[in-house]
Each structure stands twice: as structure tokens, then as C-alpha cells.
């Protein structure tokens, strides 16, 4: 039973990272967000957000322990909006080479590799990358219709990461970011699945645009008729 007419978003809570800022950003964008680790609540929601900070292998183990691996694959296949953030983006991939080889969720074909440091505009590019960096539009593909709709080109977003994703199909990449010697995929889209390497809930007004776009694409459920 829905008590609210606002879209319901389930944030996957598997013990990795701070979910509170994600929840607050959802509320700010007009969504009703709850953190959950049960398949039932994930399946009942209008949209699912897979956040996360930490190590890839640990995260997959935590998802497996909660029996969420196949549930997340089913959600991705169901057409329901699924937003991956940071480690949540990396987990969507087939595999990662972080501290040994690990299988990912395999929702997107491709892998996860380590960011290399080096020099960046004459300064040391340290790893992890902690801070603000630009996201660039990929080729001629416009952001219209994606969750980046309305975000200014080359906008600054907040990143905290040591690894990045390499989708096999370059057509899935919607945004790229340059750091040190690398230009990596910072945003991708595969149908109903969208994912970003940065933290939109910590990226100021431009980041919040992504949450607003997610809210706009969800059906506001109809309030129950009040019987006298």
C-alpha cells in the first residue's frame, strides 16, 4: 500500500558506503526513498539506486550474502530504471581486476581497471582521485533523453575513486572524464540502466539535475481514494 503519491525509490543497502546523502538527494528531487536490502522491496520500487564506496570484491560478497545478485540482474532486465553510482557503476560490469579478478553483476559487458596517476595540468594526479572534475559529452551523442539531460556540457562533478569502467560497446558511453593520462567513461547508459562514476548527490545543483531527471521519468503513483 502506498501512502505517498511521490515515486518510490529503493536504495540498495548492502553495508558499503554512506547512503544518507543519496537518500537526501532523492527527497530533495521529490522522490520517496528508502534504504533496503530485501529483494521484495527492491522489486516493489519504481526505481532502484545501487550506490557504494569501497572494494569491489567485498561489495560483490555482500550482495551475494543478501541474495541480491540475481535480483539486481532481474531488475536490470525488467526495464525498471536502475541508477548505479560510483562503485555501483563498477559492480554492473562483467569483471574487475581490483585486488585480483572478481566477477561483477555482468549487466554490462566490460571490465573495471585501475586509474593511473601521473601529471595533470602540471600537478601530480594522485590516486584515488578525490575532487571535482569535468564530464564531457561523448561524440555527437546528446544528453537529451538521458539522466544527464539539462546538465551543462563539461560540468564539474565530485569524484572519489581509484578504478574506472571500460564498456566493450563504446556506444554505451554517454560521458567521459580526463584524469592524468586517462580519459575514462564517467557515465553510461544501456536502456533502463544508467550509471555514473561520480557522486551526483555531492555534486551541487548540476548533480541534483540527475536526481530530478530520474524523478521525472517515474510514474507518480495515484493517491488512494479516501473513503468516508
Amino acid at each position: 500500500m502506498r501512502r505517498s503519491s511521490r515515486p518510490q525509490v529503493a536504495i540498495v543497502d548492502y553495508g558499503m558506503g554512506n547512503l544518507f546523502s543519496v537518500k537526501h538527494a532523492c527527497a530533495y528531487a521529490g522522490m520517496e526513498a528508502s534504504t533496503t536490502s530485501t529483494a521484495q522491496e527492491l522489486l516493489a520500487a519504481d526505481a532502484v539506486i545501487l550506490p557504494g564506496v569501497g572494494a569491489f570484491g567485498d561489495a560483490m560478497a555482500m550482495l551475494a550474502r543478501r541474495d541480491l545478485v540475481s535480483v539486481l540482474r532481474d531488475i536490470a532486465a525488467s526495464g525498471k530504471p536502475l541508477l548505479g553510482i560510483c562503485l555501483g557503476l563498477q559492480l554492473l560490469m562483467r569483471e574487475s581486476s581490483e585486488f585480483g579478478r572478481h566477477d561483477g553483476l555482468g549487466i554490462i559487458d566490460g571490465d573495471v581497471v585501475r586509474l593511473e596517476g601521473g601529471r595533470d595540468h602540471g600537478r601530480a594526479a594522485k590516486v584515488p582521485q578525490v575532487g571535482w572534475n569535468r564530464i564531457h559529452r561523448r561524440g555527437a551523442q546528446a544528453w537529451t533523453g538521458s539522466l544527464l539531460d539539462g546538465v551543462p556540457e563539461d560540468a564539474y562533478m565530485y569524484f572519489v575513486h581509484s578504478f574506472y569502467v571500460r564498456p566493450v560497446d563504446p556506444g554505451l558511453v554517454v560521458a567521459t572524464t580526463r584524469y592524468g593520462p586517462a580519459e575514462f567513461c564517467s557515465g553510461l547508459r544501456q536502456g533502463n540502466v544508467c550509471a555514473v562514476q561520480f557522486h551526483p548527490e555531492r555534486s551541487g545543483p548540476d548533480g541534483l539535475t540527475i536526481y530530478r531527471n530520474l524523478a521525472a521519468r517515474l510514474p507518480a503513483s495515484i493517491p488512494e481514494v479516501q473513503h468516508a
Partner: peptide, 12 residues
């Protein structure tokens, strides 16, 4: 020096 310049939009 390179700093983040927030977008021109107003903060809601």
C-alpha cells in the same frame, strides 16, 4: 590554477 566553476544556473 584550475578550480571548479559552478554552472551559471542559480542554485535552487
Amino acid at each position: 590554477m584550475i578550480c571548479r566553476q559552478p554552472a551559471g544556473e542559480t542554485v535552487h
